[in-house]
Nucleic acid binder design. Structure first.
Lengths: 152, 152
DNA sequence: AGTCTAGTGATACCCTGTGTCAAATACAAG
DNA sequence: CTTGTATTTGACACAGGGTATCACTAGACT
């Protein structure tokens, strides 16, 4: 176990130590900059971009170089611990969470709900037949207003 | 009718004059740079990015400034005559065609098939109930191999 | 012809990243 | 604890996609 993880394990949220352990499991080291990005990411509500991570880190002590933040985000994406969130315009946001995830995004406040069962299997079958494609992956994102913004 | 459109109408593909007429209908002028971009766009097979439009224009005579190409692409998007195509990584491609369109993309050769009925109404209802969101729009893109790339 | 507005092109700039490379450091082995 | 080595960092240059600015131009209207 890494020096950082060992030293600070008790003071870290479980979500952070969980992610850190997955880094270790994948053969990567748990360093101070990486832990910092993990903390910042788990502290966000909903989707975030790299700028927001950096801002959070600057506010809470100090921030590693922007390059390291980008590298960590990329690493987490590659390890499938972070998902890219596709907005209608903005495609530069990320959301914590593993696996095949889709999102419902509030277009007003940005809050985000993940869901897994997107029910496109039928559509995929229909299109494979009509187009002859072999479809292997998909992107499904929904946009609207969250309950709070609806009320306001 | 614009000077450009009048002068070249007979030598232009119908798809181009159609788009040009929609520009006019929306209160925009049909200028040489805009016509050129329309020609380039209709000449592409599948999705294209701004660079490809510029390359095509450079090869076929000359190209307006890159800024005008971006402006025209943005205008066509705003008028809903051009759709942004979201890839898993690459979100900087566009596809001609009006309305609520989705795409099946070949991840190998880039060829693209549009479809309209994406059958997410049921999913939308389910999620509106479970999350309390009012869902107003969505993004559905499928990825795989086209018949030709499957055979190869 | 004179004026007015939409549109153009050149260029500077912004944002999101990536490549490079010397310096730092995590971790394991001794 | 010290050493060795591969990984990681940070600073910075650079790339790609796109927008802002602004002087200038082309058409439209009188």
């Amino acid at each position: 176990m890494s020096r950082y993880l060992k030293a600070r394990q008790d003071s870290l949220p479980p979500a952070v130590t969980n992610l850190a352990k997955q880094l270790v499991a994948a053969g990567y080291k748990v360093t101070a900059p990486r832990l910092a990005v993990l903390q910042a990411a788990t502290a966000q509500t909903g989707a975030f971009n790299v700028q927001e991570i950096e801002d959070w880190l600057v506010q809470h002590g100090d921030s590693p170089g922007i390059a390291s933040i980008f590298r960590t985000v990329k690493l987490l994406c590659d390890l499938n611990l972070l998902q890219r969130v596709h907005g209608l315009d903005d495609c530069h946001r990320y959301s914590l969470g593993a696996g095949h995830g889709h999102h419902v995004l509030c277009t007003r406040c940005g809050v985000l709900v993940r869901f897994d069962n997107c029910g496109v299997q039928e559509l995929v079958q229909r299109l494979e037949q009509s187009t002859g494609f072999r479809i292997s992956s998909h992107l499904v994102e929904l946009f609207g207003l969250c309950p709070r913004c609806l009320a306001a």
